[in-house]
């Protein structure tokens, strides 16, 4: 009965389940919001890089994008987060800082995913769009991007899963996330049962999303055969 006693202590006594629920909420908010920011940044960068290919005047933007992706992908997200929380002292809400930090980080990875998606679309699609008189931007918006995004949805899903787990370091910048909740429970119960529960919650979320993704992928594949 030791196990049940430990679980009781980790969840019910001292209302520890509330810690877990609020932590879970913050973890989900961070992961979702950061993914959205990441997608916005990623689309912008990928499109700039695409247009910079045949418009030399955009080289400066192209350079900036390159520096951004290189630096972000070349340094640990935790270091980026700590630097950011130092730079954004005026923002009191640490959750917002974490969202911005993870969003900027994820943007660099999403940009690469989207860029590969855009380049996977046959050149003939662009040519057909342009031959009808559509501008470059219209062709991108109505013809290339919709197809590219469909192709990269699985990769974007994986990025979201990775991000969900990465948010576990948010505790370092004083965000009360799921991992932090596990730590707090460990401190007030003097054993690791709370952390096991937290690990289990992460696992269930990731397994659930993986399942969703594979259903999604199968459905998309069916759409291609039609």
């Amino acid at each position: 009965m030791d196990i049940w006693n430990n679980i009781y202590k980790a969840l019910i006594a001292r209302d520890n389940y509330k810690l877990i629920l609020s932590g879970l909420q913050n973890t989900l908010i961070m992961a979702l919001a950061a993914t959205l920011i990441g997608i916005v940044i990623g689309v912008i960068i990928a499109v700039i890089k695409y247009f910079a290919q045949d418009n030399k005047k955009l080289w400066i933007f192209d350079k900036i994008c390159n520096i951004y992706t290189t630096v972000i992908r070349g340094t640990p997200v935790m270091v980026q987060l700590i630097i950011l929380s130092g730079a954004l002292l005026m923002i009191k809400e640490t959750l917002i800082i974490a969202i911005i930090g993870f969003g900027i980080n994820s943007g660099a990875y999403v940009a690469e995913i989207i860029r590969s998606g855009i380049f996977s679309i046959d050149k003939g699609q662009t040519e057909a769009g342009r031959s009808l008189g559509l501008t470059k931007i219209q062709t991108m918006r109505y013809i290339v991007l919709p197809q590219a995004i469909k192709n990269i949805l699985p990769a974007l899903g994986n990025e979201f899963i990775a991000l969900l787990k990465e948010t576990s370091i948010a505790g370092y910048v004083a965000v009360h996330d799921l991992t932090k909740a596990g730590e707090l429970i460990k401190n007030n119960t003097f054993n690791s049962t709370g952390l096991y529960i937290v690990a289990l919650i992460y696992l269930i979320m990731v397994m659930g999303m993986t399942k969703l993704l594979s259903i999604f992928e199968r459905r998309l594949a069916k759409g291609d055969k039609r």
Binding site: D122, S131, I143, Q147
Partner: peptide, 16 residues
Amino acid sequence: RQKMGMVFQHFNLFPH
């Protein structure tokens, strides 16, 4: 280009 239609070898219909 609105006044010059073009037809391609590989059709290039928009599959989506």
